[in-house]
């Protein structure tokens, strides 16, 4: 399995850490097998000769799209704060401590 680079081994626990995802041991085990099959499948792309091909990042590439730099209505603060899991005084989003004691 895998292609030239031998890239289809994935360390699910490590990558989940990068993605800030807490996983159960069962999930790690399940995803490990499933994602290895997916990676082996996507490695079929290595059969293509893609030298000298420009990558496509977007279907209809647009560059430098500007709008008028004018003042306009913004969202209502109350509506935004209401969605925060924790808030204070109706105007602050309360966050967990960033600096530990």
């Amino acid at each position: 399995m895998g292609q030239g680079n031998g890239t289809s081994h994935i360390d699910v626990r490590y990558v989940a850490d990068l993605a800030r995802l807490e996983l159960t041991d069962e999930e790690v085990e399940k995803f490990q097998g499933e994602l290895e099959s997916v990676l082996t499948y996507v490695d079929t792309l290595s059969r293509l000769d893609l030298s000298d091909i420009e990558p496509t990042a977007h279907a209809n590439p647009q560059a430098n799209v500007w709008r008028e730099d004018g003042a306009s209505e913004s969202m209502c603060r109350d509506d935004v704060i209401r969605n925060a899991p924790d808030s204070a005084e109706g105007k602050y989003i309360r966050v967990p401590p960033i600096i530990e004691e």
């Binding site: 680079n5 890239t7 792309l45 893609l50 091909i53 990558p55 496509t56």
Partner: peptide
């Protein structure tokens, strides 16, 4: 390069 860039190039071929 092995995945994302290659996929974007394959996308060009499809286009």
């Amino acid at each position: 390069d092995a995945y994302y860039l290659r996929a974007q190039k394959a996308r060009t071929k499809l286009r």
